[in-house]
Amino acid sequence: MAALASREGDWSTAPVSPVVGEERLRAEFYLLLAHLLARPPSAELLAHLASLDGDASPLGTALGGLAQAARATTPEAVSTEFDVLFIGLGEGELLPYGSHYLSGFLHDKPLALLRGDLARLEVASAENNPEPEDHVAALCEVMAGLIVGAFGGGPGLDEQRAMFSAHLGSWMQHFFADLETARSADFYKRVGALGRVFIAIEAEAFTLA
């Protein structure tokens, strides 16, 4: 495996990940979803989303919907929406954690199992972070990292499939469907639709490899 850019490295001259084409785009979609679910989009990101074109494919249709929603909102409105959905007064409208969806409780056994698998992959959270690893954004970033081989050792599709099956596939579509129909969601309905379609594609694609 080719080396990836280090933290200190200059990305513009760093070796490019050997992962290209459809597989690379999978990582980009995971990162986009992770970014949108960890924080509200900046004005710059919203403008980029607004400039995207959809197409007739399932993902292209969802992407076109997201672009349309980005054109129809403002950074301030999306930021307010994000707070109501995910932060709220003590608790947001949605709880974007695998353990909540899988066991009905936060910080329950599914999180412990995930932590075991992350330790095996030598992935750890940064210090002073209060969010558990089963946050939807964290899991999307882990998948992106596995796809591009960012965690060293170069795990391939088998490792991705194992992570997806154990920690994403069984609940993330439900979460995105909830986001798609959340009472307080507007722009984020389209994020939910994109995520739901993308995770369904992922689940199917893993059966073909």
Binding site: E22, E23, R24, L25, R26, E28, F29, L31, L32, L45, H48, L49, S51, L52, D53, G54, D55, S57, P58, L59, G60, T61, A62, L63, V197, I201, E204, A205, L208
Partner: peptide
């Protein structure tokens, strides 16, 4: 082929520029 038809093809390349 499945990924391309699902939308992870040229049409989605704009997503890469976002990252």
């Amino acid at each position: 082929e499945f990924l391309r038809r699902a939308g992870l093809g040229a049409g989605a390349a704009g997503v890469a520029t976002i990252a």
